[in-house]
Design a protein around this nucleic acid. Sequence first.
DNA 1: AGCTCTTGTATAGCGTTGCTATATCGCCTA
DNA 2: TAGGCGATATAGCAACGCTATACAAGAGCT
Lengths: 282, 282
Amino acid sequence: MRDADMGVADDAQGGDPAKSSPRERLISAATELLAQSDGKPVSTRQITDLAGVTAPTLYHHFRDKDGLMEAVVARGFEEFVQREGMIERSASPIKDVQRLWDIHVHFGLTHVQLYTLMFGNAGPGRRPVLVEEAEHLLERELGRAAAAGLLSVAPAQAARAVLAANIGVTLMLLADEPDQPLSADDIAGLPLSVQTRDAVLRSVVSDPSVLDDPSRGTPSGQPSYVAAAIALNATLESSHPDQLSGTEMRLFLEWLHRLSNASGGGNGASGEALPPSTPGGR
Amino acid sequence: MRDADMGVADDAQGGDPAKSSPRERLISAATELLAQSDGKPVSTRQITDLAGVTAPTLYHHFRDKDGLMEAVVARGFEEFVQREGMIERSASPIKDVQRLWDIHVHFGLTHVQLYTLMFGNAGPGRRPVLVEEAEHLLERELGRAAAAGLLSVAPAQAARAVLAANIGVTLMLLADEPDQPLSADDIAGLPLSVQTRDAVLRSVVSDPSVLDDPSRGTPSGQPSYVAAAIALNATLESSHPDQLSGTEMRLFLEWLHRLSNASGGGNGASGEALPPSTPGGR
DNA sequence: AGCTCTTGTATAGCGTTGCTATATCGCCTA
DNA sequence: TAGGCGATATAGCAACGCTATACAAGAGCT
């Protein structure tokens, strides 16, 4: 066991670094260890050793290990939301909800262990703390939206729907994406996140045009090869598409695949590979 | 209810009742124990005791405890889907997707421990087996929908969005609802599930009127030819392309090039932008 | 037959886990 | 000074996932 760093409490909270309470040291120790040990579980002994306390101290302040983890998640999410600048609200509550969604995804992807741990222990009556927190924030913003007459359903109902989809998308991205570090701006570019976010949001908003992406205009601004695809499509459809040879199929498939992926998602992400050149014909 | 009491009991699984393989007994024992012990974890010793084998046998057939759990979940979900009558498809692929959604939610609510356990162990590279299974089923049905020209995005993309929301809703219901038994029909009545399901579905469908919500207009305003292109794409995907011949590819390219020039105007863009290797596909 | 290789199961036990029964320390109140 | 009380330490339990090793039975080969 290492006795090197007894003064563990290098807490960036800005309070009392040297002699913070054991409770605080336990939370920050768990946070730190959880962030370092990439994915794998962290034992209570590691936590208590790093915090400079012994085992019973943990169980005096928290009911059990899960209780400590809940506290860690709650604090982590709060700090995350605050640091991300969610206190200041924009003019549009809907945009704030969108930002809240992105923050949620970002938090999940940057706190994998914590995030999955919460939903792994979710039981019939055990609502994860993160759910409570996020639902509260969403309800607040959606309450503002409802007050402005922007919602078509009750704020609580809308919050549940948005949060459910938000969690699902986060978990999906978390399982899919390799362990690459991505910034907050990258989140707003993930097609799955943006697409699902606006889909659910559109279902609870009274006027869907609020969500329309200003950067990406009407679909009339399709790139030129869309027109070519249409022409080709029509040509092939007039004849028999089943009679294409295998090679033609393969190539056409790949080309169409890109096309449908690029234009179908409705993602207004910047730096897209598709130039918004206006087609002449059609 | 299966063979429970006896240590080495017969298995009604269909093949050899008297001497079913230890592997099978391990899976069914784990399934049963997991269903009985309401939410709390099940130890390997319990499983091996009930299965009538000793510890190393488990690790001979499965990599570790999670491996066994994955097998349990995979089998459970397969059986569930089959029993629910998902083999027969209706006339509308969209309706089948909706039914698949409901089945998913039903499975999650009736297999709490298994469901939460899967997502608790989900890491950066670890895709839960249930995700693979469900995504596969969804992709198949959505592929049919795309072939019928009903989708506005690629089937794979749509499947990911639907599945993400599906998982999120299931987890939310699972944490919220008390441990009451509810039938499959009850699932279709849960507002959160239905609302979110159709919201996401509406975002990937070319014609939202397919879903039973005439009040909302078409926000996406997707041009019809994009749906046609995706439909053609999905149709071609069902067949298997042969080997790639350079001559034919070049011929096909030139053909495509002419067509794009004739109808659209953007000329050379499609020609050189097509490497023969597919980067992301499987 | 004899031999080895593979597959499957059992014996016994290692190291670690979450957690606790009990005791001690220090502080506040009276 | 005594007593209560919250907080921390000492020591250790029972259970956990997992494994090193050995034994048993069949398959294939010489």
